[in-house]
């Protein structure tokens, strides 16, 4: 360093200058500085030699055809996670139809169960177990049972 007050270019600027990645004004400023500063010119030359040398490092080779090795391991191509079939709600249409049909079927089956029809006699029969008169009208108990039976059926025993 010849002049202690001289402001040198930074490694960051010299490195970016070497890569031609500086914007034009900075590039011109660095170029002017390098022309007048042997120290920075030497540093820039070091970077250039390093780049050239690294490019000379031995090229490594895998040594076999990887494509044929992995050919059998490739799974079926996946669908893009970004692609959707049209607008978002359209993709939900099949599921919506399925849900609607399920609900409609549920309502219909519920209507059959609770709205009368074949299930009703079975329910009546089941409830008659708790009547004072057992199924079949047989009562081995008090006479009052027979009176109640007469009231219900109109048959006097």
């Amino acid at each position: 360093m010849t002049d202690p007050h001289e402001v040198h270019a930074t490694d960051i600027d010299l490195s970016a200058y070497h890569d031609a990645e500086l914007p034009a004004p900075s590039r011109l400023r660095i170029a002017a500085h390098i022309a007048a500063c042997p120290l920075c010119a030497k540093r820039l030359a070091d970077f250039a030699v390093l780049s050239a040398d690294v490019a000379l490092l031995p090229k490594e080779s895998l040594g076999f055809d990887l494509a044929s090795v992995i050919a059998g391991q490739l799974p079926a191509p996946a669908r893009s996670s970004r692609r959707t079939p049209g607008p978002g709600w359209l993709g939900l249409l099949p599921a919506g139809i399925g849900a609607t049909v399920s609900i409609a079927l549920g309502i219909a089956m519920g209507g059959v169960l609770f709205g009368g029809g074949a299930a009703l006699p079975r329910e009546t029969a089941a409830m008659s177990v708790f009547d004072s008169i057992p199924p079949g009208g047989l009562c081995l108990g008090l006479d009052s049972c027979y009176a109640e039976y007469s009231n219900k059926t109109g048959v006097v025993k």
Partner: peptide, 11 residues
């Protein structure tokens, strides 16, 4: 920019 410059200087 800065990391590459540091890498070169260190190398």
């Amino acid at each position: 920019k800065s990391r590459l410059a540091r890498a070169r200087a260190a190398a």
